[in-house]
């Protein structure tokens, strides 16, 4: 199974302003009507990866995180940590049923895993 980047996330101290900028620039719409009140971006077109805007504490420089879709988040989480990645958030079961984990690669860049919870 290929493991594509299916999602990006802008981590920002002002997600509302950040979302508004890109909405006006590209005609995107955001929808926070989900259990995590996560501002998801709906591009309204086929192709490309979906994304969203997630809040960070005041003073945090905004940055983008990419998420790789995998069939088994816990298994890939183990592989990542064995390969030297640092744990930022261990595998979690999101309210929408998906699983997610966030790690920092050995070079210091955070990235995410998203997908199934394995067996």
């Amino acid at each position: 199974m290929s493991k594509p980047v299916t999602r990006w996330q802008v981590i920002t101290p002002d997600p509302a302003a950040h979302a508004a900028f890109y909405e006006s620039l590209f005609g995107w719409t955001t929808d926070a009507d989900n259990p995590l009140a996560y501002r998801q971006v709906t591009k309204g077109a086929e192709g490309g990866a979906d994304g969203g805007f997630w809040p960070a504490p005041p003073g945090t420089p905004p940055f983008v995180q990419f998420y790789v879709q995998v069939d088994d988040v816990p298994a890939h989480f183990e592989r990542a940590t064995a390969a030297g990645a640092e744990v930022l958030a261990p595998p979690q079961a999101l309210p929408d049923g998906e699983h997610l984990a966030i790690l920092k690669d050995p070079q210091g860049m955070p990235f995410g895993l998203v997908g199934g919870g394995g067996s």
Partner: peptide, 12 residues
């Protein structure tokens, strides 16, 4: 979650 004080162990 980062500090290991809370976990979302199932969707609900």
């Amino acid at each position: 979650i980062r500090l290991g004080m809370l976990t979302m162990e199932a969707p609900d």
